[in-house]
């Protein structure tokens, strides 16, 4: 079953000061539940723009994105934020944890926004941190964690709201190879065991090697879309 449907998506950046730039030029794509997909392509190909629009962070110039049947362009700004909170998890290249909160509190953060009761929040945040192998670093603030550990907290945070899918923009770009491997193993395990959908935008061959589906984007269009079920 498709959880994301993209129909004739176009994104043109036009600040009226310089020449308009077409970042996405008529993309049609579908994503199913439990996919482990990477979007690859050279810099400026439109990967991040596509990911931003999938996450409701940016609005398309034309075309539609339906997530679980919901057309994001029909929602008000506040409703899009609320929709993101309940349905989409984000893992950013630069971890982007809240520096004044501990690992546990960072994971709890979204559940706070969702208004979950304290006991439930704490239990789930602890479980998630155990799943990403950070049971002994729960009370450490991001400044006291390594890059790999921070990114694992970010994954736990993305999972906390029980999203329909997780968007990961270059999640391994700032990590050493060992940390990157560990992180990918965790995400792959979550995909296998908990059927969590991951959509990556990446340059990293290690991520591509683990993906079940690789979409290549060039000049704002889908160049190829291949499945690798044997992964």
């Amino acid at each position: 079953m498709n959880i994301i449907e993209i129909n004739n998506l176009v994104k043109i950046y036009d600040d009226r000061k310089s020449v308009p730039v077409t970042a996405i030029n008529g993309i049609d794509l579908n994503f199913k539940e439990s996919e482990f997909t990477t979007i690859v392509g050279p810099s400026g190909s439109g990967k991040t723009t596509l990911l931003n629009m999938l996450g409701g962070l940016d609005e398309p110039t034309s075309g539609k994105i339906l997530i679980d049947g919901v057309d994001l362009s029909q929602l008000k700004s506040r409703e899009v934020i609320d929709f993101r909170m309940r349905n989409i998890g984000f893992v950013f290249q630069a971890y982007n944890l809240i520096p004044v909160l501990t690992a546990l509190e960072n994971v709890e953060f979204i559940m706070h926004l969702q208004g979950k009761p304290k006991a439930e929040r704490l239990q789930r945040a602890k479980d998630l941190l155990v799943q990403v192998g950070l049971e002994d670093r729960m009370n450490a603030r991001p400044g006291k964690l390594s890059g790999g550990q921070q990114q694992r907290v970010a994954v736990a945070r993305a999972l906390a709201s029980k999203p329909k899918f997780i968007l990961a923009d270059e999640p391994t770009a700032n990590l050493d190879s060992k940390s990157a491997e560990t992180l990918l193993d965790i995400m792959e395990r979550l995909n296998h065991e908990e059927k969590i959908t991951f959509i990556f935008s990446t340059h990293d061959a290690r991520v591509v090697a683990k993906a079940h589906r690789v979409i290549t984007v060039e000049d704002g269009q889908v160049k190829s879309d291949e499945d690798y079920p044997e992964h």
């Binding site: 996450g55 993101r84 909170m85 984000f90 950013f92 520096p99 979204i110 969702q114």
Partner: peptide, 13 residues
Amino acid sequence: REFGVVVAVGMQK
């Protein structure tokens, strides 16, 4: 950037 992140993950502006 931090503001961008918290709004991205679901905090109302």
